[in-house]
Amino acid sequence: MSDQPSPSAYRLLLQLEQQFDYLLETIEAAVSLYEQQQPPTWVFHQTTPTTHWLREALFDMWHEQDQDGRETRNYIAIVAANEELLTAIDAINQAKANFSELLQDIKKSFPGALSDAKSRLPKRHPHVDEVLRRNGLARLHLKQSWRQLPIAQAPVSRVRFAWYSSGRSIKRLTVQEAERKLIQLDTDAPHIRIQLRKLASIPSGEILAQVQTQAPLMRANLFFTEPLADGHTRRALNAAMPIFVPANGQRLPHINLPALQPPTTRTRARRRDEKLEHEVFLPSLRVYRYR
């Protein structure tokens, strides 16, 4: 039997449920408005988007069975929205931000209550039982629940989409940190012992790089009809969620048609100032040495 949350944790969980209910209400208000207005819309590789595609996209906040928790499903689209719809989308973003902030408070102050929150929140979804039966969805996907909906700052003349498939994150590690990570693995395994010996052969003060290759993502370049107040004429952003642009005469901006799948090979030349060695130094940790 699991421990009951403390009164303070319970209050935060209650606030979280209320904020989640409010988030669902803001989504319902926006998608209902969208379905009523049916504004000009472009959806990636859909000749004729279904009436309910936005509802499906914005209410998609659940893990599928066997889904990697780090992965999120993408909904690449452009919507030419009027002021009323833009205001409704902004309300969703505010609700998402507040929901995310509460989750972080719970994670920081009452980490044991987070799993309880995740099990309780799906029950707040008005159609969750039906969704679970139909699609085999499991639990709330936090990353998908709080990710923001991009809103263009000004009217847009054209949008250029392109796959970005060479992204990576780099975390600096000390030799001691790398050693601890290797020891947490199976030190009886020959390949781990080999890597520990390699690590022992380099200076103890050397800084290493742990590299995580990021999944391919779609990027969008928005070109504004006029320069913004700061002088910028375009903005680049990740296009995982629908992008809402101010309706410019009820027309969509010019949009290129990117490939259905990301390229299988690197399309950008390697940076000449790339500072990591080409060969991985500690394969089990994806750790490289700097040149």
Rank of each mutant, 00 (worst) to 15 (best):
Ile192Asn: 03
Leu16Val: 08
Lys171Pro: 07
Ala91Pro: 03
Asp105Pro: 00
Asp116Tyr: 01
Pro111Trp: 02
Tyr290Ala: 08
Leu199Arg: 01
Glu179Ser: 07
Ser284Leu: 13
Gln250Leu: 10
Arg193Met: 10
Gln214Val: 13
Arg266Gly: 03
Leu228Glu: 03
His278Glu: 14
Lys108Val: 10
Leu208Met: 06
Leu102Phe: 00
Ile106Ser: 02
Asn93His: 12
Phe110His: 14
Arg172Tyr: 13
His141Cys: 09
Pro258Gly: 10
His45Asn: 09
Leu257Met: 15
Val43His: 06
Ser115Leu: 06
Asp129Gly: 02
Asp21Met: 05
Pro122Tyr: 01
His125Cys: 04
Gln195Leu: 00
His278Asp: 14
Val245Gln: 08
Ala152Glu: 08
Gln153Leu: 11
Ile27Phe: 02
Ala77Val: 00
Val211Gln: 13
Phe110Ser: 03
Lys118His: 10
Leu85Ser: 11
Pro126Ser: 08
Ile194Cys: 01
Leu185Ile: 10
Leu222Gln: 02
Ala178His: 01
Tyr22Pro: 02
Phe224Trp: 09
Arg11Glu: 15
Leu276Val: 01
Ala81Gln: 09
Ala229Met: 05
Ala229Pro: 04
Val43Leu: 11
Leu140Asp: 05
Phe59Asp: 15
Pro227Asp: 03
Asp3Phe: 05
Asp186Ser: 03
Trp62Cys: 13
Lys181Leu: 15
Leu58Pro: 01
Leu58Thr: 15
Val287Cys: 08
His191Arg: 10
Trp42Lys: 01
Asp68Arg: 02
Ile255Tyr: 04
Pro203Cys: 00
Leu208Phe: 12
Glu177Thr: 12
Leu282Asp: 03
Arg234Ala: 07
Leu121Ser: 07
Phe110Glu: 03
His125Arg: 04
Glu71Phe: 00
Arg197Cys: 00
Thr51Trp: 00
Val287Arg: 06
Leu257Pro: 05
Ser157Asp: 13
Glu101Lys: 15
Gln4Tyr: 12
His45Cys: 09
Arg271Ala: 08
Leu208Cys: 13
Gly69Ile: 12
Glu71Lys: 03
Pro7Asn: 13
Thr50Glu: 12
Pro40Glu: 04
Trp62Phe: 14
Ala77Glu: 10
Asp230Leu: 01
Val31Asp: 07
Val287Phe: 06
Asp21Val: 11
Asp188Gly: 02
Thr213His: 12
Leu196Val: 03
Thr233Ala: 01
Gln104Tyr: 07
Thr48Asp: 11
Glu279Leu: 06
Ile170Lys: 10
Asn221Met: 12
Asn248Glu: 13
Glu35Pro: 06
Gln210Tyr: 00
Phe20His: 13
Ala152Phe: 10
Ser115Ala: 08
Thr174Glu: 12
